[in-house]
């Protein structure tokens, strides 16, 4: 057993787990935070996406012990002060989901993606990787969100919701 301490959605947690337990299992099985989903358990779908110190990762391929001391945000923690996160509102308004299974991962991923874009990162479809001030076109959003699959095919709504939030003044 190893002791892990982490802040999850602002709450300090401390628990003893075997070192082979994934962050996804800690969240779902040990902390009861079942908003984060397991799709493939092999890094191939994005349903398990959470934020670690603001960066998006796949919780299924993360050994929990490697994230001790870190600040984790799951879908349960994205809304601030009782109001839904703007992306949550936009996903509802723009039909960003059907069954909803991929949605928590999509929203956490989009939060991380907008932060990366805000920090000036390029993507595989950016024409010039050294460019600054890269516009967040539909093609850029699709590429930057390609780590999140949606079996219902709600992609048009997902892209629209993210674009709405990216373009709305904060």
């Amino acid at each position: 057993m190893v002791e892990i301490r982490m802040r999850v959605n602002g709450v300090s947690e401390s628990l003893d787990v075997p070192p082979w337990v994934s962050l996804l299992d800690v969240l779902r099985e040990h902390l009861g935070l079942t908003g984060t989903k397991r799709g493939c358990d092999q890094g191939a779908c994005g349903a398990c996406t959470v934020l670690v110190d603001g960066e998006r990762i796949n919780a299924c391929l993360a050994l929990a012990v490697q994230y001790t001391g870190r600040d984790i945000t799951t879908i349960e923690g994205v809304a601030g002060g009782g109001d839904p996160h703007p992306l949550q509102t936009a996903f509802i308004r723009d039909d960003g989901f059907q069954c909803g299974y991929c949605t928590s991962g999509q929203i956490c991923s989009a939060i991380g993606m907008l932060a990366e874009h805000g920090a000036g990162s390029a993507s595989a479809v950016t024409e010039h990787v050294a460019a600054t001030g890269i516009a967040l076109s539909g093609a850029e959003i699709r590429e930057r969100m390609s780590g999140n699959l949606c079996r219902c095919g709600a992609y048009n709504g997902i892209v629209r919701a993210i674009q709405d939030v990216a373009e709305s003044p904060r």
Binding site: G43, G46, T49, E55, R56, I57, N58, L61, A62, S109, G112, M113, E116, A122, S123, A124, T126, H128, V129, A130, R144, M145, S146, G147, N148
Partner: peptide
Amino acid sequence: YPLLSQAILTGASAQLRNM
């Protein structure tokens, strides 16, 4: 070394590249 940035950005997904 723009080819290196591009090569990395075409690999895996943003989540995996963060890890």
